[in-house]
């Protein structure tokens, strides 16, 4: 509790910005990857369907 207000160490600001970007863009990356997996699955299934039909 003895931290004074005049302690202007910017480490907290850096940590906040870094973590925020990590969370936002990490999540975005995760989603994009998931989307790609599903798209590939759909494409694979469609290919299988086409090959069985013909």
């Amino acid at each position: 509790m003895e931290q004074s207000i005049t302690d202007f160490n910017p480490i907290y600001v850096y940590v906040v910005y870094a973590l925020t970007w990590l969370v936002l863009f990490g999540y975005l990356y995760y989603l994009a990857k998931k989307q790609k997996t599903i798209e590939t699955q759909i494409q694979d299934l469609k290919n299988i369907m086409e090959s069985t039909e013909s």
């Binding site: 509790m1 003895e2 931290q3 207000i5 302690d7 160490n9 907290y12 940590v15 906040v16 973590l19 925020t20 969370v23 936002l24």
Partner: peptide
Amino acid sequence: TIVLFSGSLWGRPVWGA
């Protein structure tokens, strides 16, 4: 989640908690 940790990391230097 971001609000919570940024609030916490803001509170530590400014509020002292």
